[in-house]
Design a binder for these strands. Structure first.
Lengths: 197, 197
DNA sequence: TTACACATACCGACTGGTTAGTCTGGTCAT
DNA sequence: ATGACCAGACTAACCAGTCGGTATGTGTAA
């Protein structure tokens, strides 16, 4: 196996993904040329097209990574052995922390979906929908038990919360006054307070 | 004044802006060529570059229009003669309705900011900030009066709400089950319920 | 152990195509 | 006839993806 790593120990595909993620978040997908990506990763086009089928594939990988992580996290909180308020609060706060810790990914996720090819876009939407429905199920469970208000349809509540998560990448600054955990606690609080019967 | 209008009665600059708005929302700024815009508007490049300095200018005009409308609306509700809960609820619901009625604008607004030139971007951010602060002032007023909870900083509450507004363009469908007004009432409800002391 | 085949990892010049913006030359109401 | 308004060919730059080529490994048979 020849130089799959170079300089640092990070394998070339990883280096390419990292560079692409940063550049896509900074300048957007269309404004980032393949040439820039390979230069930032310290390789050439040959390497990129050796590991990835297209520029589009690179973007898709970013999505796949985000979806995988978020789904795993939600599974964890969904299946916890605790009252539904605690499970929902845990999940709601966790997605905020995770999003802040990967702001670049979040930025790309919500800003660049329309750059994915139609099939990939469809696939991402399907996985996203599954996530959404699992989250909604938590709220509906609480509504059935009477611990959450039924004034607002669960679907809308989910969109309300994820709107704020989505929005994080446009206003949160790591050098701001609030830590990720503090923001997460506040946003989860707002959700739970809105759901009080 | 020669044919500033043509075919229909709409003046050419308007036709160009309308075409650009629709195309930017459908395909994104970068994926839309100037050629497509002028064809959709039924003119040629000469006309576009007669009225607008650049493609970027066209985008900026979309932003200017949105900002102007939203600011006017907020001013109206801010200065209303009514208790602060009513003023906040009115403003919160109205921005939802307005956003749904101009989903294309909203889509462009949140997805294409980074395509604006640096100065224009800065200008838009400044006006946006003014809007944000005026909205925040409403919440702080209610908090001082004791009608809103002070558990969450007003800034965060504003971002929470505008996150959901921002998010509308990704999930709201005109052919869905809820009318714009119904969505607006629900989202305003969630905000006010979260703010109950 | 050497020799040779084969595979994997990567390089970088090149191609075909697209794009924003320019420029020259009209046209038409007043 | 004059100037605001517009047509459309043209240019210079850029970009995703290709392709022939090189380098370094691994397996295998003499």
């Amino acid at each position: 196996m020849p130089r799959t790593t170079d300089g640092d120990g990070t394998p070339v595909p990883q280096r390419l993904l990292n560079a692409a993620t940063r550049l896509f978040a900074e300048q957007g997908y269309d404004r980032t040329s393949v040439q820039e990506i390979v230069e930032a990763a310290g390789v050439t086009k040959g390497a990129l097209y050796h590991y990835f089928g297209s520029k589009d594939d690179l973007l898709h990988e970013v999505y796949a990574r985000v979806l995988r992580v978020q789904q795993e996290r939600l599974d964890h909180f969904s299946t916890m052995d605790a009252p539904v308020e605690k499970r929902l609060r845990g999940a709601a706060a966790d997605v905020v922390v995770t999003t802040i810790e990967n702001l670049d990914d979040a930025m790309i996720f919500f800003r660049s979906m329309h750059h994915l090819s139609p099939e990939k876009n469809k696939q991402v939407r399907a996985e996203r929908r599954r996530y959404h429905e699992q989250f909604r199920a938590l709220i509906e469970e609480g509504q059935r038990e009477g611990v959450f208000s039924t004034a607002t349809p669960a679907d809308l509540v989910v969109d309300y919360h994820f709107g704020s998560v989505h929005h994080l990448s446009t206003w949160y600054r790591p050098d701001g006054p609030l830590t990720p955990q503090q923001v997460a606690d506040h946003l989860a609080d707002l959700l739970l307070r809105a759901l009080r019967p």
